[in-house]
Design a protein around this nucleic acid. Structure first.
Length: 400
DNA sequence: AGTCCACAGGAAGGGCAGGCGA
DNA sequence: TCGCCTGCCCTTCCTGTGGACT
C-alpha cells in the first residue's frame, strides 16, 4: 500500500496539471481588464476624482446582487485612484472592510478601532468606551491633512446587527475634522437597505448611488472565457463547458463569483479523476459538490443548541412535510432532557429557526392558522439524499 | 363583529468573558 | 484587585397579529 502511495504521488507530480494559474478563478483575483462594468467604473471614478484636488467628494452607495462585480470594480477604481494619488503626492488613504467578517468589522467598536489601528493608534480589542475609540480615531485621522476613503462592504449586515448609529456618526465626523476628511462608500446586496435608514443617514450616505445590474448569460460567458484563458492550459476546456457554467450562474441572478467557483471546482474534479480535459458533466458534479460542502461546513460550525434544533427538524416525523415552531420546540425539549442538556426557551429557539431560514437550510414563512394561532411553517431546504449524512454528522457533534 | 389562539418579534436586562486603567 | 467597558448569548416580559371560530 505504502509503495502504491509513493507511486501515486510520483505520478501526480509528473502529470501535467490542467491548471496554469488557478488564482485567476478565485474571488479576490483582480483582472487587468474588468468586463461589462465600464459605465460603473466611469461613474465611480467621476465621483471620486475631486479627491485628487483635495476636495470633499460625495459619499457613495453601491447596490447590486451578489457576484455582480461591486467589490471588484470599487477596489479597482480605488486602486487606480490611489496610484494617481501617490504619483501626485496626494495623501489619500483607502480602507476596505467587509462588515460580514465576524470579530473584525461587525460592530461599531471594531470598525472604528480597526481604522484607528491602521492609522497607527493602539486600541485594545475591547474594554474602552466607544466614545473613547472615536476620540482615538479622530486624533489619528486629523493628525494631518489627508483623505480617508472608507469602503464598507456588506454594509446592510452591519446595520442589521448594530443599527444605523455608526453611519450617523461616520457621516457627521467631517464636521469635527479640521485637517482630514472622510468619504464613505457603502456596498450592499440589499435594495431595501436604504429605505430602513434614518432619513438623515440615508441622504448623507447616498449622496451618489451606483447600481450594478446582474450579468446576463452572454456576459458571464465572456467573463468566464477571460479567466479560463489565464487559469487553464490551452485546449483543456471542451465545447459547451463555459456555456453550461454561465447558464447555471445566470439562473442564480447572474452571479459571476458562483460561475467562477463552479469552473474551478469542475477543473479540480476533472483533474482528480485523471482527465486531461474538462467536460460538461464535470460542471454538473461541481454544482452538486459545492452545495453539499457548503451545507455540511455550515452545520458543523454551528453552536450546540443550533445543531440540536436542526437535528430535531431533520429527524422529526413529517406526516404532511410541514413543521411548525411549537412542534419543533416540543421535540427539541424532549431530546434535550433525554441527553441531559438544559433546553433554551421557545423565544430563543424561534430566533434560531429564523436564523436557519436566513442561512438557507430551511424555508420558513409566518402563517396564521386562524383559531389555532400564528406560527412559522417550516420546510427543509436540504436534499433528502444529504439529510442522512447530516443526521450522522450532527449525532457525532452532539455526543462529542 | 368580536374573541381567541399560538406564536412572532421587540425591548430590556442578566450573566459571563475578555480587556483596560488606576 | 477592582471598577468599568463591550460583545455575546440568553431569558423574561410584553405587544402585535392573521384568520378560524363563535
Amino acid at each position: 500500500m505504502q509503495q502504491g502511495l509513493t507511486m501515486y504521488f510520483e505520478s501526480y507530480i509528473n502529470k501535467e496539471s490542467i491548471f496554469i494559474n488557478k488564482k485567476a478563478l478565485q474571488p479576490n483575483y483582480s483582472p487587468e481588464n474588468i468586463l461589462h462594468r465600464k459605465e460603473q467604473i466611469e461613474q465611480i471614478a467621476r465621483i471620486m476624482a475631486p479627491n485628487l484636488k483635495l476636495d470633499k467628494t460625495s459619499n457613495i452607495f453601491i447596490y447590486g446582487k451578489p457576484g455582480s462585480g461591486k467589490t471588484l470594480t470599487t477596489k479597482y477604481v480605488i486602486k487606480e485612484l490611489q496610484k494617481m494619488a501617490i504619483l501626485k503626492n496626494i495623501p489619500l488613504v483607502p480602507f476596505y472592510m467587509n462588515c460580514k467578517l465576524r470579530r473584525i468589522a461587525d460592530t461599531e467598536y471594531r470598525i472604528i478601532a480597526e481604522v484607528a489601528r491602521e492609522l497607527g493608534k493602539s486600541v485594545p480589542v475591547t474594554g474602552l468606551p466607544t466614545e473613547e475609540v472615536y476620540n482615538l480615531f479622530i486624533e489619528a485621522t486629523d493628525s494631518k491633512k489627508q483623505i480617508l476613503v472608507l469602503i464598507l462592504d456588506e454594509i446592510d449586515q452591519l446595520v442589521k446587527k448594530t443599527g444605523d448609529g455608526i453611519l450617523y456618526n461616520l457621516t457627521r465626523l467631517n464636521e469635527e475634522l479640521k485637517k482630514a476628511q472622510i468619504t464613505l462608500i457603502g456596498i450592499s446586496n440589499d435594495i431595501f437597505f436604504l429605505e430602513n435608514l434614518d432619513s438623515r443617514v440615508r441622504s448623507s450616505l447616498s449622496e451618489e448611488e451606483v447600481t450594478f445590474p446582474p450579468y446576463n448569460a452572454i456576459q458571464l460567458q465572456e467573463i468566464l472565457k477571460q479567466r479560463a484563458d489565464i487559469a487553464f492550459r490551452p485546449g483543456v476546456i471542451e465545447d459547451g463547458v463555459i456555456e453550461k457554467c454561465a447558464a447555471y450562474a445566470a439562473q442564480s441572478h447572474g452571479d459571476a463569483r458562483r460561475a467562477l467557483e463552479l469552473l474551478r471546482v469542475a477543473g479540480e474534479i476533472a483533474e482528480r479523476n485523471g482527465f486531461n480535459t474538462m467536460a460538461v458533466a464535470h460542471i454538473d458534479d461541481a454544482e452538486e459538490r459545492i452545495e453539499h460542502d457548503q451545507i455540511i461546513e455550515l452545520v458543523k460550525n454551528q453552536p450546540k443548541h443550533f445543531q440540536l434544533v436542526f437535528y430535531t427538524i431533520l429527524i422529526m416525523p413529517k406526516q404532511s412535510k410541514k413543521l411548525f415552531t411549537g412542534d419543533i420546540y416540543e421535540h427539541y425539549r424532549r431530546i434535550c432532557s433525554k441527553i441531559g442538556i438544559k433546553s433554551l426557551t421557545q423565544r430563543r429557539v424561534s430566533d434560531i429557526i429564523a436564523e436557519f431560514d436566513t442561512l438557507g437550510i430551511i424555508t420558513a414563512r409566518v402563517i396564521s392558522k386562524g383559531r389555532y394561532g400564528r406560527t412559522r411553517e417550516i420546510l427543509l431546504a436540504t436534499q433528502a439524499t444529504m439529510n442522512k449524512k447530516l443526521i450522522k454528522i450532527l449525532e457525532d457533534a452532539i455526543n462529542a
